[in-house]
Amino acid sequence: MIKNCTIITLIIFLSCSLYEDTEQPDIYFQINDFDMLPMGRTISDMMMGPNNNFLYLCDYNNNSMIKISAQGTMKILNELVVGSHPIAMDISPDKSHIAVAMEGESNVYLISLEDFTISTIISVSLMNMNDIVFVNSNRLLLSSTTDPTVITYDIDSDTESSQSILNGELLIDQEDSIAYVASSSSIKKYHISNNQASLSPYVADPFGFSATINHFIINDDILYVCLNNKEDSESIRSIYSYNANTLTFAGKYQVGSPGLGVVVDTNNEKIFIAPQDADENGIFIIEFDAQTKLEKNYYLAAGNLKEKCMVIDQTSSYIYILVNTPGDNDSFEPYNDYPFDLQRIEIYN
């Protein structure tokens, strides 16, 4: 009897190895909980404030600006009703104001960063504005989707000037007074030190199709552009970068999807790209190594992302993204237009 029991016990003991996983899967990533601020808003632009404490968001559907505390638990600190459909914003070089362009009215709102109130409303001739940047603390550059050219606006003298710059997404190199414009067909470079802008001889190669610009940034003399071809969204599977001086290619970042947003850390070592399409396992912010231009880390997003959806703090500790969870879209709320929540992701070092 003891012999039989011993044999059965031995068989059971030896067979335990059949249930042990001695190998791990090739691709390994861990899922943790999400750090979320539920908002339920449709956001058109987002920026980190000068001292890393606050995030500023354009709430497109609610015609307002939102100030969010980025330290500790994220929370909405203040909301300021502005004009019809804020679409883009920029912080002044002296860090005193935010200029907000409206899509639904021909006004620009200057908001004081000190007390988060409207300090000035500027009337301009443009309609359907799409972008705004500070050339310097007193001069704005404004673009529209329907007017033929970009304008500059001098805040001190209240004067508007039409420029020979085609509309598009705007960037400014304030040090060298250079404007970069990503249009539907190419990237162009303009000298804007004088009252009238002049086109630089350098023009980036045409994209070869009519592109929508999802995000356009400059960092350390490198331009990064996220493009989408609305006719064929599968034709663009990469994010491109250009040398700001010559507008030649500086890098191509394959993400297998059109990009919606791109940010670079303060040391210019890490490039974070928000893709439009999900992977089979979800949507991941992809971190690229700036030197090798290869993928390095992945950060799981809580939902679908959005153009201009991502910012990074000045200490390169966190990235902030706007996410839309598709399951929430079956709401019975009237005019529910894919509301977004804010997700904070700690950067892996």
Binding site: P275, Q276, G282, G303, N304, P326, G327
Partner: peptide, 15 residues
């Protein structure tokens, strides 16, 4: 399940 955009090629927009 509720798919994200691009997660399944037959249903690109998700849902």
């Amino acid at each position: 399940k509720v798919l994200f955009r691009g997660q399944y090629h037959n249903q690109y927009e998700g849902g």
